[in-house]
Simulated scan of single mutants.
Amino acid sequence: MAICFASVLLTNSSIWLVSSQLLLLLLALTVAATYVSLLNDWTDRADDARAGKANGLAHTSGGRVALLLGVCLLAGAGFGWYFWRISPVVTGLYLGTWVVFTAYSLPPVRLKGRALAGVLADAAGAHFFPQLTGVTLMAASLHQHLPLLWLGGVGVWALACGMRNIIWHQLSDATNDAEAGMNTFVTRFGASTVRRVVEWVVFPVEVAALLVLLSVSGRVAPLVGLVLYVGLTLIRYYRWKMTLTVVQPQFHSHVLLNEYYEVFLPLSLLLAAWWHQPADALVLLGFGVLFGPTLWRTVRLFGRAAWWLTGQRWPTG
């Protein structure tokens, strides 16, 4: 959503004008995510059984799973048809998510068990194609053209961010994957090597692409949001003794930048939009309703940090 907001603001348009398209995009990606989850769990049954890992579809009949997948495919085809009427490019990018995740899970291709190919496939399906689908949908709906640097920056940033997220998942599930004999990126090259690759290659690329996007956007608000996020992160580290991590899951740790993407970036963009277009207050309200729990956690943390900075004790209970 944040990248969609930024794309609309790049055209100096009101986000409210495409609010219905944003909701439709959210539904379309939810259908795709449901399909991915069902297909992945169904094709993981044997591997999960070998690893002694619970699988929600382990005792579900093949007919029922086929019905659910069919419903998802039918709904996805409907969204694809609607997007085609707006722009064939949007449909192609939306279809990319379905195709790459099918190849990720389904034998005989099953890229999930092919080390780096699996990482790239998951990153493309979960981040690259959805982000570019949203960006191109906004541009086509507004009949505007976005700079190639913006489109390229979104693609690089999304792919790097997606790689970091799937590798985080593989690191947290490395024991189960090894017991199941899965040839993931982590089980093949080892946790320490993969962690260094993310810390010294993938994450710097992600940060560089993010800075390019912030520069191209030309907005001060996302930079202010970044400063506030960095301040809260420093308080986490120095005051609350939390470990700051790029990819390795740890106890009492904070994964860098994820909270900025989920809270600070979208809120700063919506506040900037509201400042210039009063109608965008409705989008801000809708965003708060849809993602309230995530936002509230950060608001509470901010309150706790502010309380500490004033020398007060944060109330309990």
Rank of each mutant, 00 (worst) to 15 (best):
A6Q: 14
A6Y: 02
L9K: 03
S13L: 02
S19M: 08
L26E: 10
L26N: 08
A28Y: 01
A28H: 04
T30E: 12
V31C: 14
A33M: 03
Y35W: 13
Y35D: 12
V36E: 15
L38G: 04
L39D: 09
N40H: 12
D41L: 10
W42C: 07
W42G: 05
R45P: 02
R45S: 05
R45C: 00
D47T: 13
K53G: 07
K53H: 12
N55E: 06
N55I: 13
G62F: 06
V65C: 06
A66Q: 13
L69H: 03
V71E: 05
C72Y: 00
L74E: 01
A75L: 15
G76R: 08
G78C: 10
Y82I: 07
F83S: 04
S87G: 09
P88D: 11
V89G: 02
Y94C: 01
V99W: 08
V99G: 08
P108F: 05
V109R: 01
V109L: 15
R110E: 05
L116N: 00
A117C: 12
G118W: 01
A121C: 04
F129L: 08
Q131D: 07
V135D: 02
L137Y: 00
L137I: 09
H143C: 11
Q144D: 06
P147Y: 08
L151A: 10
G155W: 03
V156T: 03
A158R: 02
A158W: 01
C161K: 12
M163I: 05
W168K: 06
H169A: 14
Q170T: 01
D173Q: 06
T175D: 15
A178P: 12
V186I: 07
G190H: 10
S192I: 12
R195E: 15
R196N: 12
V197E: 03
V197M: 14
A208K: 08
L213Q: 04
L214M: 11
L214R: 00
S215H: 12
G218L: 10
P222V: 03
V224D: 00
V227G: 13
V227R: 11
G231R: 12
L232F: 02
T233L: 15
T233Y: 06
L234M: 14
I235D: 11
Y237S: 04
L244P: 07
T245M: 04
V247N: 02
S253V: 03
H254C: 01
L256G: 07
L267P: 00
L267T: 00
S268D: 05
A272V: 05
W275S: 08
P278R: 06
A279C: 09
V283F: 05
L285E: 02
G292H: 13
P293D: 08
L295Q: 14
L295V: 15
W296F: 10
W296H: 10
R297N: 06
T298W: 00
G303A: 00
A305F: 02
W308D: 08
G311Q: 06
G311T: 11
G311C: 09
W314E: 11
